[in-house]
Design a protein around this nucleic acid. Structure first.
Length: 786
RNA sequence: GCCUGGGUGGUGAAAUGGUAGACACGCUAGCCUUAGGAGCUAGUGCUAAUUCUUAGCAUGAAGGUUCAAGUCCUUUCCCAGGCACCA
């Protein structure tokens, strides 16, 4: 009587065994080659872990286990992005404190991740909300501060009226809050910034060297948004100052018919003439409360200032307007209006009856192919004359602009790392001494409710301190850091998580970094991934690291949607929890199915019905132990070699779905042959073990091994073993498939034609006497043209 | 509008320019079973017919290159994701 496969007992047994034997512990000081396989730091939300979260973790675990079998020392850690708004909001809602909420969520997440059989070294677990971690987040702040790369400035910020906090540009894409989808307002307040813009050029230049998805690299390039052009200074009639504009097409200066400045531009008061003051005030009053999203209209509103500028190339007098289609944040907050060669300027000119003057015979397909039609350089291509024109314009210079803005990092919320700054009446803004870190979050706050004022101001215990300079009474900065700061350096901490003095031991960091394979969702294409690159470059400059890119290879995991094709969410009731699938089908089946259902990077709709195929497969794997035979079939050897090669290739390429197909093909073959040798069975189990670590471990031990399958080596392909001797060759006649013939491998054209001649069916279809041409690709195809 | 990806059976999907649809789900028939939402066997792109065979048609559409195109080139339509007044 054959026993069925009882995953519940068996998986439990091996989970305990792996824990007890510390099977997945990383030896940081190893002499072996290293591989750092990392998942993006999960946010332990109260909603729990669902099947979509698992997919990425299984993919990285497959790779980690594969590389372990290939003889690498593996660092495959896990931790928690534990600070943040949702936890704080949940705490407010339930009356619990964020510490407890976080602990509960982490423990739930961790349990499921262990159940799924990830080969994680849990000794290296990190938690960004733990003081031993955020001490170094604060240290990072101080290091940046000392280099002038962290600074407080009053500036317009994205404000979420619902979360009552500031958001970064990356968190407010499209003018809505990333967390709650509310519309963003623009507020002008004191905020802390990291000057990522200082690194714009380097962040851009290193993109080509990354083994990342093209789309992500392109997104970063666009986000950084480098444009080369010129800054041109315009004299203003009857005024003693100039107005600077930025343009990428300085050659069109001949066609400037007006100047437009942004409504937020501080020069407006000085430029506006008396008689236009009321108009201008009204205009600005009407547009300023509007959010950016409302400003993105094709209607180009604007108002005349009453003043005129002088075009430096031809001394033409041109009107200066104010319009909200000009953005203060980019360039100089003023543009030259060239309606003939700019769509927006044309819309504006048409609406406000402004002149249109052509400069170029514009080539619609390629601007570079346009020729000048007026001025000194008439008849020449734009590209050749640009530099000369910049030279010709008095007060013009080459200028490069970036769309990238500084990184806003301060938040008016409680559940984050406090910014280590002290305000002293005598000394002003003073950084906390490094030796005084961490600045610990207080435990005397019970009401976190967002009011717009940082909650930490309510804690006297926290706020009151002494000035590190003069020892006088002083107050602490009450804002906390955005969680993206926590996660901008965490990948370093896994290497040396207990280090009390530094981010991590320098030698260890340099040995283990960069991350060899980084797996996570594409939603972090510009936020987290750009911040991490910036921080790595900064720490490189500071001499802590000898590498300047943190993630060598990046792979995105596709989202899993609910069975109803909507995003998995409590709101729709379509969440398939990790717990449910693991309880129902076990870890091996869950893992295999998540890898099998579609290409890894692709989004998918969950389908519980389809999981049965993998379940059947696992049951068949279990039954292989009953058909072990001493006699090896030649086809069995061929199939085994092929399996090893294919799976090897597919894991390397991240084509996880295709390796699962290979296992199934192999299984079909073995069942057809009716037996398998112990040796081949072992090889099969080892190649399967990265995907199905439990059943492969159990069967390996049943085969008599005392040591874990996960400590064995990837099987070798036998080169001198039996190879396929015959193949089926497709036969085409005039380009159409008419049949196949079974031939010896590497047969000559002559042999093949003879064989076709002997084939009753094929020879009837071909006029073998009148062959015009034969195309024979060895072992691939033969095409006979009559 | 711009930047990425994609359009292949009833479904998820495979295919270094060389037998399109591997592998799996589903479906159909049969076996086994008290039962099947378990298991096993066979079949399954579409359309014809003279149906154990054969022919034609099939990878969003239209052209092109080639002995040969899902794959390369040109035009075009549609879908998904991202960005979007960046001068």
């Amino acid at each position: 009587m054959q026993e069925g496969y009882n995953f519940k007992e068996i998986e439990k047994k091996w989970r305990e065994f792996w824990k007890k034997t510390e099977l997945y512990k990383t030896d940081i000081y190893t002499k072996k080659n290293k591989a750092y396989i990392l998942d993006m730091l999960p946010y332990p939300s109260g909603a729990g872990l669902h099947v979509g979260h698992l997919k990425g973790y299984v993919g990285s675990d497959v790779t980690a286990r594969y590389k372990r079998l290939k003889g690498f020392e593996i660092l495959h850690p896990m931790g928690w992005d534990a600070f943040g708004l949702p936890t704080e909001n949940f705490a407010i809602k339930t009356g619990k404190d964020p510490y407890t909420v976080t602990e509960e969520n982490i423990s739930e997440f961790k349990k499921e991740l262990i159940n799924v059989g990830l080969s994680i070294d849990w000794d290296k677990e990190i938690n960004t909300s733990h003081k031993d971690y955020y001490k170094f987040t604060q240290l990072l702040f101080l290091k940046l501060y000392k280099k002038g790369l962290a600074e407080k400035k009053k500036s317009p910020v994205n404000w979420c009226p619902s979360c009552k906090t500031v958001l970064s540009n990356e968190q407010s894409i499209g003018g809505v809050c990333e967390r709650c989808d509310n519309q963003i307002e623009i507020k002008i307040i004191d905020q802390w910034y990291f000057k990522i813009t200082e690194y714009a050029e380097r962040l851009l230049n290193d993109i080509p060297s990354l083994k990342w998805p093209v789309s992500t690299k392109k997104m970063q390039e666009k986000w950084i948004g480098k444009s080369k052009g010129a800054e041109i200074s315009f004299k203003i009639e009857n005024k003693d100052f100039n107005l600077n504009i930025f343009t990428t097409k300085p050659e069109t200066i001949y066609g400037v018919t007006f100047i437009v400045i942004a409504p937020e531009n501080t020069l407006i008061d000085k430029i506006t003439t008396k008689e236009y003051q009321t108009d201008v005030k009204n205009y600005i009053k009407n547009i300023s409360p509007q959010s950016e999203i409302e400003r993105k209209k094709d209607v180009k509103t604007g108002v005349f200032t009453g003043s005129f500028a002088i075009n430096p190339i031809n001394n033409n007098k041109i009107p200066i307007w104010i319009a909200d289609y000009v953005l203060m944040e980019y360039g100089t907050g003023a543009v030259m209006g060239v309606p003939a060669h700019d769509k927006r300027d044309l819309l504006f000119a048409t609406k406000h009856d402004l002149k249109v003057e052509f400069v170029l015979d514009e080539n619609i397909k390629d601007y570079k192919q346009s020729k000048m039609i007026i001025g000194e350089y008439k008849g020449k291509y734009v590209e050749e004359v640009r530099d000369n024109i910049i030279k010709d314009i008095k007060g013009a210079k080459h200028k490069t602009e970036y769309k990238l803005r500084d990184w806003s990092i301060s938040r008016e919320r409680f559940w984050g790392a406090p910014i280590p700054i002290i305000y002293c009446d005598q000394c002003g803004e003073v950084p906390v001494k490094e030796s005084d870190l961490p600045v610990i979050l207080p435990d005397d706050i019970t009401n976190y409710k967002p009011t717009g004022v940082a909650p930490l101001t309510k804690s006297d215990q926290f706020m009151n301190t002494k000035c590190p300079n003069c020892n006088g009474d002083a107050k602490r900065e009450a804002k906390t850091m955005d969680t993206f700061v926590d996660s901008s350096w965490y990948y370093l901490r896994y290497i040396d998580p207990y280090n009390k003095k530094e981010f991590g031991n320098k030698d260890s960091l340099n040995k283990w970094m960069p991350v060899d394979l980084y797996i996570g969702g594409s939603e972090h294409a510009v936020g987290h991934l750009l911040y991490s690159r910036f921080i790595t470059k900064f720490l490189y400059d500071e001499g802590y690291l000898n590498f300047s890119e943190p993630f060598e290879q990046l792979k995105h995991v596709g989202l899993i949607y609910g069975e109803d094709k909507r995003k998995m969410s409590k709101r729709w009731g379509n969440v398939i929890t990790a717990k449910f699938v693991l309880d129902e089908y076990g870890a091996d089946v869950t893992r295999l199915y998540e890898m099998f259902m579609e290409p890894f990077e692709q989004y998918a709709f969950w389908n519980t019905n389809a999981i049965i195929g993998v379940k059947r497969f696992i049951n068949r794997v279990w039954k292989l132990q009953y058909i072990i035979s001493k006699k090896e079939h030649p086809e069995e050897t061929i199939a085994t070699n092929k399996l090893i090669q294919k799976v090897d290739e597919y894991i390397k390429k991240g084509k996880y779905n295709l390796s699962v197909s290979e296992y199934m093909k192999y299984m079909n073959k073995i069942e057809e042959l009716g037996s398998i040798t112990k040796e081949n069975f072992e090889k099969f189990l080892i190649t399967l073990s990265p995907y199905a670590p439990f059943i492969s471990e159990e069967l390996f031990s049943i085969l008599g091994h005392n040591e874990s399958i996960h400590l064995s080596s990837w099987p070798q392909v036998q080169n001198n073993s039996i190879k396929e001797t015959h193949i089926t060759l497709p036969v085409q006649i005039n380009g159409k498939l008419r049949g196949t013939i079974y031939i010896e491998i590497d047969s000559s054209e002559k042999t093949v034609l003879e064989k076709i001649n002997k084939d009753d069916k094929l020879s009837q279809k071909i006029d073998l006497e009148n062959i015009k041409k034969v195309i024979y690709v060895k072992n691939k195809i033969i095409n006979i043209l009559n």
